[in-house]
Structures are given as C-alpha cells and as structure tokens.
Design a protein around this nucleic acid. Structure first.
Lengths: 209, 209
DNA sequence: CCCATACTAAACCGGGCAGTTCAGTTGCAG
DNA sequence: CTGCAACTGAACTGCCCGGTTTAGTATGGG
C-alpha cells in the first residue's frame, strides 16, 4: 500500500488536460462528461490523460476544487469606497447579485449540488470558498461600518447572511432552475434597492426612510 | 405518427411501479437510478414495468411531476390566525423554514437542479408548484394584513420573496449542499426571529423597532 | 374447466463508457 | 546518430444499463 492514487504533474501536456477537463466538466457535469470527450477537447490522447490522472473521479475533483478556489478570488473583492453607507451597500449588493447570476457561479453550484452525494467534500469546498468566504468579507465590512457608527447590528453574521440573501431575492432561484436566463438591469436594480432598503430599515443608524 | 409514448395506467401492479420508482428516483436521481433497481424495489418484473411505461424518462417525469404536485399541497397551508402580526409572521416563517429544510423538499430541489438540462420542464414545474405557489400564498396574506393596516408594503411580490429568503437564511444553503444536516430548534428560531425583525423593520406599521 | 389477460424470470441485444494495452511516432539530450 | 521518455491512436476488455424477447405461470370471469 504505497502512495494512493497520485497525480503526476510532470509532462508537456498536463495543462492541456486540465483545460480540456475544465471545459467538459463545467459543461456536462461529472456523470455526463466522457473521458474520450475530455481527451479530444484537450487535444491529447486518452493514454496520455491516464498517465497523469489515475481515474476520472480524481481528475474531476482536481478541476472542481480549482474552480472553487477561483470562485474564492471572485468573492474576494471588497469595495470599501468612501461613500454614504447606502451607496456602498448598493454597490456591494450589485456585485453579489452579478456574481451569483453569472454563468460560472451557476454552473459550479449546480455541479456541486448534483454531485453532492458522490463528492461530499466538493460541496463543502464550494461552500467554504464561495458563500462562506463572501459572508466573512461582508462581516468585516459591516464591522467597520459599525465602528464608524453607520450601522447598528447585534448578530453580524446573521446580518451578512440576510444581506446576501436579500441581494439575490427572486433572481437566483429562477436562474439556477433555468426558469429565467436573462435578467435586465432594471430587474436587478429593483431587487437590489429593495434589498438595501430592507437591510437599512433594520440595521441603519439614521431614521433612513 | 399516432399517439406518442403513452402510459398505460391499467394493470394490477401499476401503483406498485409508481411507488417503487418514487423511492428509487428520489433516492438516486434519474441517472443513477437503474430500471432493474426500480423493478426490484417495486416487486415487479422489468417486463411488467415496461408494459406500463414506454421508457425510463417518461416514468421519471411522471414521478417527478407528481412529487412537485405533492409539494404544492404542502405549500398550501395558510395560517391566518387572529394574532398579532408578529406572531403570525413567526409562525409562517417557521413553517417555511421547516418545509424548505425537510428531506422531501431538499431531494426534489436537488433532483430538479441536477436534471435541469435534461428535463427543463421539470424544473419549471417545481418552481411553479413550489416557490411560486408559496410566494402567492404569502402575497395574499400580506394583502390582507395591509388591508388591516398591519403592514405597509409597496411591492408586495418582492416583499414576499424577501420574507421567504430571510426565513431560510444561513440554513437552507448549508442543507442543500450537505454541509449541515441537522438543525437545532434554537438555530432555526434565531434565524426566524431575525427574519421577522428585519421584515417588520421595513414593512411593519408601528415603530416595531 | 377454459381461456384471455396480466405477470414473471431470465436470457439476451446493443451501445456507451472507464480504463488498458501496444505498436509506433515525435522530439529532445547527450 | 542514438537512445530515452513522452505522446499517439486505435483497438480491446469488461462492465453496466436500457430495453426486448420468450417461454412459462398465476388469476379471474364465463
């Protein structure tokens, strides 16, 4: 029983394989993606692919986790502009909304949900690198705003969660189910201002409305 | 081109097949469920199964849609008790939260998301019979409360959506990803009161703080 | 008792796909 | 030029699974 199921990262075409696998897995998910497809898209022979990765599952987790990491970066964009709190919240909500409605984010989520039983650690990685990370960002921003006397929050963690949920109200679920695929700026704006208004009604410090 | 792909509902064991298929599909989803499995669980021969249903896909949609209908019923429970608006909202939020965290609801959602590309009309049926239905219920209740002067809402539809989203904050996503499977009454209660407080801060009519 | 209809069990077909093998090619290092 | 390591392409194995067929068994009405 030596080292189990290792990935050999040496080789000229390793990156091609990763790229091909990324494309195919993101488009088809784990089950529906075929290794022949991946090899073809990667411009690599199946034998070469299997010289890098011991099996399909490990190739998949490699891709999926790296995508989850990518997501962490997209989530890591704090915008603490010097502006009225309401404007800052609007900007942040817009960012959250756009991210959550993006094709990329949607695909990852759907794959994680679909494959949640087969790859439970994947769903966890998604959660921690995506929503959890975003929530922590928000918490931090809220803490600062509280220190500046712009917000009044007892349970910061819950407030962050509420804000994120409000920011995607009505849109995200429709998107993830494919009920609606395109969202006008107007729709988004309405949801976002609604979210910020509700949020500030509870946590705003001035009689904001 | 005569009648295409009909289901023969006559036969002693038709219901057994439905029941078996329901179990297996709900447990494994479409792809991972095997017809042999379904036949075995249903206590029926494969040939009998195929005498009722022309193929696996139609059997699946039959089950899935009927489950979506079942969901509509679970969603159709209005509780317009004569009580302070806050208590009513707490009760409603509790109901929403429990429903959305139930094993049943979670399974259906996951299946619809996983199979969304193969069966788009299924995801739509889910959306209309589940979330959409629930939202309409909420809207109606809100309208009445507005008429009674207990709430002040401009965009009732958005408010309903916000309420539902707030009621599942922090819990639902964790459940659907399998990050957390058990939820204490305490956790749920905290989220719910937080949701109602936030909601009332925005839409409550008295300075409900 | 007869017979039609429903059902069974098991073998079977065909196709798809993960993973392997192997004979041959390419390309680079010494 | 030589030799080695990476890579190719295509065939091949084995398995699973959807769907069909068939030969035979239960059931219930007339």
């Amino acid at each position: 029983m030596g080292a189990r199921a290792e990935i050999k990262r040496t080789g000229r075409k390793f990156d091609q394989v990763l790229e091909g696998a990324r494309k195919v897995f993101m488009a088809d998910g784990f089950e529906r993606a075929s290794v022949d497809d991946i090899a073809r898209v990667a411009g690599v022979s199946k034998a070469t692919l299997y010289s890098y990765f011991p099996d399909k599952a490990l190739l998949f987790t490699e891709i999926a986790r790296s995508e989850c990491d990518r997501m962490a970066e997209t989530a890591r964009q704090n915008i603490s502009i010097d502006a009225p709190i309401r404007d800052v919240l609007i900007a942040v909500a817009t960012q959250i909304s756009r991210l959550l409605l993006s094709d990329f984010s949607q695909r990852i989520f759907r794959i994680c949900v679909a494959e949640r039983d087969r790859f439970p650690e994947l769903a966890r990685a998604y959660y921690e690198n995506g929503p959890e990370m975003g929530r922590k960002q928000l918490e931090q921003g809220f803490e600062e705003a509280i220190a500046r006397g712009e917000l009044r929050i007892c349970d910061v963690s819950l407030a962050a969660e509420q804000f994120a949920d409000l920011a995607r109200s009505r849109l995200w679920l429709r998107a993830v189910l494919g009920v609606q695929t395109e969202f006008s700026d107007d729709e988004i704006k309405k949801v976002i201002t609604g979210a910020v208004d509700t949020f500030l009604a509870r946590y705003g410090v001035s009689p904001d409305r």
